[in-house]
Design a protein around this nucleic acid. Structure first.
Lengths: 350, 350
DNA sequence: AAAACTCAGCTAACCGATTAGCTGAGTTCG
DNA sequence: CGAACTCAGCTAATCGGTTAGCTGAGTTTT
């Protein structure tokens, strides 16, 4: 690899001049400029980022730390973030904390070592201590994404989870359902907790309560949702409608419904929150409250770049996006359901 | 951020000693070692990668350049690669060439500037010239993934696409189908071309030919597959079975089938290649030839780390994985189909 | 015409690590 | 007892850039 010295020698100038030409940081006469540029081309010179980073104290790297890279929801975030970050001139590092706080801690140490310019973090767990990433020096610019952490002051980009749960629930209630069930995410994260709270609030305001035997909690995973959905739906007086907290879980629930021989929406109505790629191919089309995922990601990157530019976090900003109800055909009015029907024979096999 | 000098001062030793302790690169007495380690802890010191990179000429960064980050297939590759790369002590940079050769070129220049230690590349297009990433100096260690490029010498990790197409086709032929159709990927990439070739070979060896009006080509995208599937299936004498070149496309095809009011496998049998997350929730379960994706990714990372370690590419290695047939229930024997039935009324709407 | 000013381009210090080579106290041996 | 050897730990060069501050030729001012 050619260095700035090689270029300087080839062009017959000093390294300072080469640097000035490359960065447009000082006036250089047309003649020297031309000589430098042609030497750059001849030698196929490209400045070493390592050297620039060392001197400038930045790295043009942004880290994205997600809670579960196997979840297609976060895959979409990766996709959107790559584009957003590239548009601002940064490159994107990907880390997977796999919902494990101690892995998250290790990743954040690594991010610091790599001297990333900023981090977009989907925080795991409810601890807040280890997020204060630099005890002494200035902290790395950080934007929390999707989930928030109590009493941690930093920019956040989230959706209104309560509204997501409420909207979906109200849609089911409007169809006449009263015996509702839900499959929630982990209740110690805001995305899990908030959606359940929204659902309960919606029911309460109509004088209904969500029975605890119709609540199942689990991880945001397809297989977990599948098994809890089975156990929920195998109850003799199962609910007539289900609110499922995430798109990936909804896939598992649909699979459970099919395997139990139930028909959706004939036997059971299903609504969910968030969307994942490929879910559009599913029949019936899922009724769901969707996140404006691309907008959220762009906003997170924008906030982060802003922090980086101003050299430190300003007053923390909290941007909350509203989910919107997308009506599919996975829900039917309760009158169309024939009371609490038994499980069909084909599905009763264990 | 504390530097090595701060640590040296605090411990009352030279920076060389601190470096020796941290890297275990020379003998240091127990007493000094203890003093250094405690200073490191006190100051929360972590060596600057930028400085190490500059001095050592490496970056502990591996770049993964995929052809389409919106494709869930590549999302799984990202997931697997993150884990594999982390296990070897590297961090993962993600780039999306979006199937555009000129974007790929820019990305590779960026990768060079970032002085990444290696690249895993899903090559786009059939050009080979710009892949020789460093005209003069030594090239960046590279492993091509999934697709190969004619006459470009480097390690590659691929699947046997011909076998993938052949296996799926033979399965359909064994069920008695003779009027087969296919939805292929782009034919200028090996994953598109090879699968079609495998299909044709399978048919030919039974004395059948694939009629060109039953072949539709497109991008590896859900919406593209949807529309070509519609046009293919709306023909009066449509095929009785379809081979679809990718998982994402299969989702689009299933959607088209549903929207046309056709039943799968009742009216049409569908087999595909590759799998994507969420497809497991699809009913009917798709019959497909699957890639051992995690193994492939691990192997690619292993080859790459090997290249990095030995400081240059050895004799190029070509690792080809065999796809395996996973039987679902999206295919039925041809006898179960009632001749060439008309489109059902509900589906004939445009 | 000398003093004051302008400014293109150079010199050299610096960023924070690593490491070749040196120093000097302690040990071994003739 | 002094030469030869060992080796823990130090000094200083180095990686490849950026940039404060200097230089000296050309222009303006008085």
């Amino acid at each position: 690899m050619a260095t700035i010295k090689d270029v300087a020698r080839a062009a017959g100038v000093s390294t300072a001049t080469v640097s000035a030409v490359i960065n447009d940081s000082a006036y250089v006469s047309a003649e020297l400029r031309a000589r430098v540029l042609s030497a750059v081309r001849d030698l196929n010179y490209s400045p070493s980022l390592a050297a620039q980073n060392l001197k400038r104290g930045r790295s043009q790297l942004i880290a994205l730390v997600v809670a579960d890279l196997a979840n297609p929801f976060f895959s979409r975030v990766v996709w959107a973030a790559e584009a957003a970050v590239a548009a601002w001139g940064y490159s994107l590092l990907i880390f997977n904390s796999d919902e494990k706080p101690e892995v998250e801690r290790r990743i954040l140490a690594r991010v610091r070592t790599l001297s990333c310019d900023g981090v977009i973090l989907v925080p795991v767990g409810d601890s807040t201590e280890h997020l204060r990433n630099d005890p002494d020096g200035k902290p790395i610019p950080t934007v929390l994404f999707g989930r928030s952490v109590a009493d941690y002051r930093s920019d956040t980009v989230t959706i209104d989870n309560i509204s997501a749960g409420r909207q979906a629930t109200e849609y089911l209630l409007d169809l006449g359902h009263t015996r509702l069930g839900t499959i929630t995410g982990p209740l110690h994260v805001t995305t899990g907790r908030g959606r359940l709270d929204g659902m309960m609030a919606a029911m309460q305001s109509r004088g209904l309560t969500l029975e605890s035997r119709y609540i199942r909690s689990g991880e945001f995973r397809e297989d977990a949702a599948y098994s809890v959905a089975r156990s929920l739906l195998e109850q003799p007086d199962r609910p007539t409608a289900l609110y499922v907290a995430s798109g990936l879980m909804a896939l598992g629930v649909m699979r459970a419904v099919a395997d139990l021989g139930l028909r959706c929406p004939g036997d059971i109505s299903i609504a969910s929150t968030d969307t994942i790629p490929g879910i559009g191919g599913l029949r019936p089309r899922l009724t769901r409250t969707e996140h404006p995922l691309v907008d959220m990601t762009n906003e997170a990157v924008r906030l982060l770049v802003d922090q980086i530019r101003r050299g430190g976090p300003a007053e923390p900003r909290n941007v909350v996006f509203q989910p919107s109800l997308v009506v599919g055909d996975s829900c039917a009015p309760v009158v169309a359901q024939l009371g609490p029907p038994p499980l069909s024979s084909s599905g009763s096999c264990q």
